[in-house]
């Protein structure tokens, strides 16, 4: 699963540690989610959506969505 967490975080100029603190998780968890190594639990994903005032599908999307949209753009 891909996500826009890094972009959303950068828009707010938050460090991983700041976001982690707001969400009550470790910085390593935020990093692992951002690099796609770890898919967060539903409660954490909803907490992320709430903190960025976005819908889940605006933050997370399956890998094939990206491939399809990239193909469409070309």
């Amino acid at each position: 699963m891909k996500n826009r967490l890094r972009v959303l975080r950068a828009e707010r100029e938050w460090s991983q540690a700041e976001l982690a603190q707001r969400l009550g998780v470790s910085r390593q968890t935020i990093n692992a989610v951002e690099v796609g190594k770890y898919d967060p639990s539903l409660p954490l994903a909803f907490a992320m959506a709430r903190i960025f005032n976005a819908r889940l599908e605006d933050i997370f999307f399956p890998d094939d969505t990206i491939v399809r949209s990239e193909g469409t753009d070309q």
Partner: peptide
């Protein structure tokens, strides 16, 4: 979220975990 906001998040272990 059961974990309290305000944990030290510099590493993998938060104070509660420690």
């Amino acid at each position: 979220m059961q974990r309290t906001i305000g944990v030290a998040c510099s590493g993998l272990l938060a104070p509660l975990d420690v």
